Structure formats: structure tokens, C-alpha cells
Amino acid sequence: MPKIAASLSGPRARLVLAGLIVAMTVSGCSQVRGRQGYVVDTVLTDAITPGVDNRESVERTLGRPTFVGQFSDNEYFYLARETRQLAFANPRPVAQMALRIRFDPAGNVVAVDRTGLDQVSKISPEGDKTPTLGRERSFFEDIFGNIGAVGAPGTGGPPQ
């Protein structure tokens, strides 16, 4: 037993221990890839042609849409997003596709619109406070500020 304890206390043991710590730290920093929504096949999405395809051919080619238009069923939406995440950081979008297919009342494709990552907005909240317009009041002004401003208590309105 004394030989084992002696072999773990030298500079070589410190190097091995440091290597293990670095390996465990680096393995936790790997990138996580995520996909959400429709799995895009560019050959199939490019095959949808206005004036040629109809609602049934679109569903056979691309499958059921991610969602149908809110106000009428003459629009199909196919949404796809790919994200990457480093360790415990928030995921960030790497690729995105929004495909909108519009139909006429007869069910024929009228237009095919595509948007990508250029439509993604980054929203940065202001902080813990919501900025408001108007006066800045203290805690006690908020609590006691309306005393006497409306009228006598119990009368239901301003004094006559």
C-alpha cells in the first residue's frame, strides 16, 4: 500500500490529475445541435411551382404543413430552425427557413415565399425594470400619494 500512495503524490500524478480535470472541463463545453420543425429538403421545396401544383400535390411532396393560416386555410407554412448551443449558454440560431405557400380558392398554388435567418430578431430586455413614461415616484409616494386627491373617504366622490 505505501508504494501506491507514494506513486500518486509525485509530479507525474499531478500532471495526470490536471489532464483529467482539463478533459472533464472540455467535454462539458461541446456544442449541442438542435433542430426544430420541418426537416428541409431543398430539392422538394424547390419543386413546388405556382400554377402547376395544387394543395394535394404539395401535401404529397412536402407532407402536412407545420401550421395552416390563421384566418383562412389558403396558406400553408413550413417552418424549420437549426440551433447550436455551447455548454450552458442559450441556443443561437444557425439556419432558419420559413416557407409560405399560398393557394387560390380552387386549391392551386399561387405563390411560394421563403424567408431565412435574415428575419430573426435579437431582443435584449432592458433589465429588471420596465421603463415607463411619467414621473419617478418613491415607494412612499406610491403608497400615500392619492390621499386627499380624490375626495373625502366614504362619500364616493369629490366634495361639493
Results as ranks from 00 to 15, higher is better:
59 E>Y: 06
59 E>W: 05
60 R>I: 10
61 T>V: 04
61 T>A: 07
61 T>C: 02
61 T>P: 00
61 T>Y: 00
62 L>M: 14
62 L>N: 10
63 G>R: 08
64 R>T: 10
64 R>V: 07
65 P>I: 12
66 T>Y: 05
66 T>V: 11
66 T>H: 04
66 T>K: 03
67 F>E: 11
67 F>D: 12
67 F>Y: 15
67 F>C: 06
67 F>Q: 10
68 V>I: 15
68 V>R: 15
69 G>I: 04
69 G>K: 06
69 G>P: 04
70 Q>L: 15
71 F>N: 14
71 F>Q: 13
71 F>D: 11
72 S>L: 12
72 S>W: 14
72 S>Q: 14
72 S>A: 15
73 D>M: 11
73 D>T: 13
74 N>E: 12
74 N>S: 09
74 N>W: 05
74 N>T: 08
74 N>D: 13
75 E>A: 14
76 Y>G: 00
76 Y>E: 03
77 F>V: 15
77 F>I: 13
78 Y>I: 14
78 Y>T: 10
78 Y>V: 14
78 Y>P: 07
78 Y>L: 13
79 L>K: 07
79 L>S: 09
80 A>H: 14
80 A>V: 03
80 A>I: 03
81 R>G: 11
81 R>A: 12
81 R>W: 04
82 E>Y: 04
82 E>K: 05
82 E>W: 04
83 T>E: 12
83 T>G: 05
83 T>D: 13
84 R>F: 06
84 R>T: 15
84 R>P: 01
84 R>H: 05
87 A>Y: 11
87 A>N: 09
87 A>F: 13
87 A>G: 03
88 F>N: 12
88 F>Q: 09
90 N>V: 06
90 N>D: 15
90 N>Q: 14
91 P>V: 08
91 P>G: 07
91 P>S: 08
91 P>T: 11
92 R>A: 14
92 R>E: 15
92 R>K: 15
92 R>D: 11
93 P>V: 15
93 P>A: 09
94 V>F: 02
94 V>R: 03
94 V>D: 05
94 V>M: 04
94 V>T: 14
95 A>L: 06
96 Q>N: 02
96 Q>G: 02
96 Q>V: 07
96 Q>R: 12
97 M>W: 09
97 M>K: 11
98 A>H: 08
98 A>R: 07
98 A>L: 11
99 L>Y: 03
99 L>E: 03
99 L>R: 05
99 L>A: 02
99 L>I: 09
100 R>Y: 00
101 I>K: 00
101 I>N: 00
102 R>W: 02
102 R>V: 02
103 F>L: 06
103 F>W: 01
103 F>I: 00
104 D>G: 06
104 D>W: 05
105 P>M: 12
106 A>Y: 08
106 A>W: 06
106 A>D: 13
107 G>L: 01
107 G>Q: 01
107 G>F: 01
